[in-house]
Design a binder for these strands. Structure first.
Lengths: 202, 202
DNA sequence: TTATATACCACACATTTGTGTGGTATGTCA
DNA sequence: TGACATACCACACAAATGTGTGGTATATAA
């Protein structure tokens, strides 16, 4: 199960094909894989699938057509390359040095359930020193284990929501803006969720 | 084809089920749809599919199992609710006032092709005043129509990449950091792409 | 009344698809 | 040499799945 080990070139090619097809919305049949790979026997494809299952990259359901699922680590659709780390301070990285790939979905939400997640569009500048600007989308995970120093969405007494950093001083929690022009909030509040992602589109 | 018109409640339910299954990676068979809907005949399901195809919401390939595709406008997986606008300045919005939904994929990349897009992880603090922090993922669209004031990924003479704001002064382009501690860059450079999205995970 | 449309069911049939058994050829290890 | 693994092929069979024809019941319009 955990023996991901090395994949042979052909095993990799099979996996890539499965990924592509799953990404397109229609997993391949055994014969379709065989055709893609140039195999003339369904048995051969099954051997490859067995190997991929063995290595924990793929799951299957029996007696169901196209029922091929990418296992945890292999579910990488919507891949975009990460071409290294850009240095926003002093440039220091060569171009086109692809470090790997990220799954767009993964990058966005990770493997959270979508049920506990919602998004808010940020208005105002009270979190500007934390790099959160007006217009950004703040993705919040509900009922989380929010801790001191986390940025949280909080419900205030007047039934309004605000995004602030959760702080505690001498045992008491309060909300702190990331902007010196805004005073801390000491009134009653309830933490709705914790900020897990910020997305900004230009 | 364009007669989306209204869907009957059952047609909507069928469409929802297809969406769900496609989102899960395995489109349903005709019989699976029938079972979900309580239909006892495959013919009934085919009538419904025909209606959905007629209305331009679904596409199919013949003689292929599970070959149901969501047409353009219907492909909305990964929906997360937007519960209004959060005010990071002064709280002013009621909780649970769902404004609508966004498609996670859409939020992330919009409807761009993935081919011209890549990501960089930001290092350093030269763009901090633009709300771009160390560790953020910068999504770049290649060979774009970069204009003055756009934030761009630029290739410098020494073959290194940097993220800066593109500026022009008296007809000449240069790169400007968003941090007073960094001087503008006047040396030779080539714009690789334009910053379209910033993602930060906490 | 007839005609037409909607909303289903029954069921036979063809095709697609998955399963299972067994085979050949090649190479490696002992 | 024998034992074993890898990498394939052939092919029969069963199960899943899509297709096609025709039926019933209900409502609506002409």
């Amino acid at each position: 199960m955990e023996d991901k080990g090395y994949l042979t070139p052909k095993q990799e090619k099979v996996l890539r094909f499965i990924r592509k097809r799953v990404g397109e919305g229609l997993p391949p049949t055994i014969r379709e894989i065989g055709q893609e790979m140039g195999f003339k026997s369904t048995g051969t494809v099954r051997d490859y699938l067995k190997a991929l299952i063995q290595k924990g990259l793929v799951k299957r359901m029996n007696n169901k057509s196209r029922a091929i699922e990418l296992a945890e680590g292999a579910a990488v659709f919507n891949k975009i390359p990460i071409i290294g780390t850009i240095n926003a301070g002093k440039p220091n990285l060569a171009y086109e040095e692809i470090q790997g790939y990220v799954d767009a979905d993964d990058l966005f939400l990770g493997r959270l359930g979508f049920n506990d997640v919602f998004a808010l569009r940020v208005k105002g500048d009270s979190m500007i020193d934390a790099g959160i600007l007006e217009g950004d989308v703040a993705v919040i995970k509900k009922r989380p284990d929010a801790q001191n120093n986390d940025i949280v969405a909080a419900l205030l007494d007047n039934n309004e929501v605000t995004l602030k950093r959760l702080r505690s001083k001498s045992g008491r929690f309060y909300l702190e803006a990331a902007n010196v022009n805004y005073p801390p909030i000491f009134e009653e509040f309830k933490v709705i969720g914790r900020l897990i992602t910020v997305i900004r589109k230009y």
